[in-house]
Computed example of a mutant assay.
Amino acid sequence: MSQDERKLEKDSHHIQLTSGDIAPLWAGYLSDSMVKGVLQHFLHTVEDVEVKPVIEFALGLTIEHMEFSAKLFNDEKFPIPLAFTEKDVNLNAPRLFSDGFMLLYLRHMGIAGTVSYAMALASSSRQDIRAFFIQNQKTAAELLEKATALLQSKGILTRSPFIPYPDSVEYVHKESWLNGLLGDRRPLNAAEISNIYLNIMKNSIGKALMIGFSQVAKNKEVIEYIVRGRDISTKHVEIFSALLRDDQMPAPATWETEVSNSKESPFSDKLMLYHTIFLSAVGIGNYGAAISASMRRDLTTVYLRLTSEIGTYADDGAELAIKNNWMEKMPGAVERNALLSL
């Protein structure tokens, strides 16, 4: 068989990318590109010799992901997202966040990765792409473990509240167990406590990021938008913390003191705006997961109200990105009506 015949046979068995393959690859390339810039700044400003290797590990993963996706897009003759470049990062800027916060950021990168790659794996159909996301799940879990173990060794890993072990198995006997109304409200269960705690931590990380971003951003509208996000995160932390305190449980400490007083930006306004919108999208997903695990109706009401607030905020951020010509269009279905000769 000639070389041309072998190529023709190979091409005849080629499986085109589906929307379920494209979506996580395309969105992942953008988010990896964004995170790459953040990690490059971390690597240039970190002081703790134990934290530095974890940053290097995470940065290596983002580069590997981008290289795989770029090659695949090239092979498919699919346009590679422009995403973010070296122009979006100023490596000469002084540190904006503490080493402890960098480590916490890395831990939550691992958490987000294990969740997003599981969803990507579920939507992907091609074997090579499934293998890519399976490997990414493993390395995200490895990053999570490295960051968590180091936080623990340094004594700065915050744990969700302890609860007493039950003496025996119990069944629910009253429908009011679901209500969560004042005067007849049961204490939070383990799943509800865990989700409230995680959402406090994730909002706290977002708040610290937005404090840092807001003090170094240049565009007035971007600053105002990020400050609004900071205030939303603050409010959500207070709401969730109050739920824990109602049951005499401690709320975790927040991280806003881990931001320096630097005014020189390590990142472009475009990158910081995208990161802020990205956090909003992650927050909506977190609240959705919490709703599914919450049996008290008052908690569902709280999560739905806060989700609506974040959704409106994310929509406003998208409009701001479009206004500045910063939002790349995700590939989608053909606009058939635009093809009509009318």
Rank of each mutant, 00 (worst) to 15 (best):
D11F: 13
T18Q: 12
T18I: 05
G20W: 13
A23Y: 11
P24M: 10
Q40F: 00
V46F: 03
P53M: 03
V54R: 01
E56Y: 05
L61Y: 07
E64V: 12
S69T: 15
D75L: 13
D75G: 04
E76S: 05
I80G: 01
A83F: 06
E86F: 03
E86V: 06
F101C: 02
M102Q: 06
Y105E: 02
M109W: 08
M109Q: 11
A112K: 12
T114L: 01
M119T: 06
A120C: 14
A122W: 04
I134D: 04
I134W: 08
N136W: 13
A141H: 10
K146A: 00
A149Y: 12
G155T: 05
D167A: 13
S168L: 12
V169P: 09
Y171K: 11
E175F: 10
G183S: 10
I205W: 00
K207E: 15
M210F: 11
S214A: 07
Q215A: 02
E224A: 03
G229P: 02
V237A: 01
E238Y: 07
F240P: 00
L244G: 01
N261V: 12
L271Q: 07
F278W: 15
I284Q: 14
Y287I: 09
A289P: 10
L299I: 14
T301D: 13
V302Q: 05
S308K: 12
I310F: 03
Y313A: 01
D315Q: 10
A321W: 00
A321T: 03
W326P: 00
E328K: 08
E335R: 05
